[in-house]
């Protein structure tokens, strides 16, 4: 069996905007059929990466390959890559059908075939019968689906999604997440998904890359990125984490190398509870209690610093103050580079 070519490959790509390096010497690959997320805060370079893949922007140096073909200088209309825009970018003067069929119209696909494929595509995104509507007559979620159908009808090698769910409310967003995942499974197209929402990235992705200041801090499958964050930035940006260094690190692990530990990996007990033989423990004082409904978040003061601890609210007895014992397994300590 021959090795599959990567859908997208960045080789030492740099994109400089005046004084700022939006993308700084990046190299990574996205495999065919993968749901790959670019996760990072705004200004971290993830959207610039997407625009480089789409062809709206060209790198200052480096090479971008699509299925092994050098593409860094190709215009957008010569790449088999389609984009779902953050603001959807539907054409307001066209109907839903004309929007979705736009790329087929440009390719001079016969009218009957075009009509059939547009109908199929609209079925796929559950917008059957909406052909004749104008984008202005649709809700936010429906526009989103039209944008998706329009980008998928061409069966691109890669589908780029630029924070497509950002404008939707929470319930709709969760529903669209599920649908996106289902659609991706069905069409078997590589999805590259830009988001600043770490939960979304963890939920949807096969793999994700965490961006910070034009560089990738870590690439991996969601569980790996969450459980074993490579850097303090990842530990902090993906989920909630205790990033411990200095005196507290010295007190807890006997070394001042920084490490991360997730709040839910730390158990809070009273002082009498015996510590299992292979676990670590510390004694601290509850400083703050934040009731979150499903769980409670505590800030516990220890010698040399604080730890955040999250306890599931499985019993109604929630300690409010006083001295407590914290217990955790050694394996949950992630040393940071």
């Amino acid at each position: 069996m021959t090795e599959k070519l990567p859908a997208v490959e960045f080789v030492h790509v740099t994109r400089q905007f005046e004084a700022m390096r939006a993308v700084d010497d990046l190299s990574f690959t996205v495999d065919q059929g993968e749901f790959f997320s670019l996760l990072g805060p705004s200004g971290s370079g993830k959207t610039t990466c997407l625009r480089l893949i789409a062809g709206f922007d060209q790198p200052n140096s480096g090479s971008i390959r699509l299925l092994g073909q050098e593409a860094a200088s190709l215009p957008p209309y010569e790449r088999n890559v389609n984009t779902v825009f953050q603001d959807y970018a539907l054409f307001p003067h066209m109907t839903v059908g004309e929007n979705v069929g736009y790329s087929l119209m440009l390719k001079k696909t016969p009218k009957q075939e075009r009509q059939k494929r547009v109908e199929e595509m609209l079925e796929l995104v559950q917008l059957g019968g909406m052909m004749q509507r104008k984008p202005s007559q649709l809700s936010g979620g429906q526009r989103q689906r039209v944008a998706l159908a329009r980008a998928l009808i061409n069966e691109p090698q890669v589908l780029l999604l630029d924070e497509p769910l950002g404008a939707l409310d929470l319930k709709l967003r969760q529903q669209m997440q599920m649908e996106l995942k289902a659609i991706q499974k069905r069409v078997e197209i590589t999805f590259i998904f830009v988001t600043h929402d770490q939960e979304e990235a963890l939920t949807l992705s096969d793999r994700l890359a965490v961006f910070n200041r034009g560089k990738i801090e870590q690439i991996g499958v969601p569980a790996e990125v969450y459980e074993r964050p490579a850097t303090a930035f990842v530990a902090d940006f993906v989920g909630v984490s205790n990033v411990v260094d200095g005196t507290l690190a010295q007190a807890l692990i006997g070394s001042d190398r920084s490490f991360a530990i997730r709040p839910e990996k730390i158990h809070m007990t009273d002082l009498e509870t015996p510590v299992p033989p292979d676990a670590c423990s510390a004694v601290g004082q509850i400083q703050e209690v934040l009731y979150l409904g499903i769980s409670t978040r505590y800030r516990v003061a220890l010698q040399g610093g604080y730890l955040t601890v999250v306890e599931q609210n499985t019993t109604s007895a929630i300690p409010r103050s006083g001295k407590v014992q914290l217990i955790w397994q050694r394996e949950h300590i992630c040393p940071l580079s």
Binding site: V81, F91, A151
Partner: peptide
């Protein structure tokens, strides 16, 4: 929106 022009180019125009 500038993105409309980009969308058009993206779709092969």
């Amino acid at each position: 929106a500038k993105s409309q022009i980009e969308a058009s180019m993206d779709l092969g125009a």
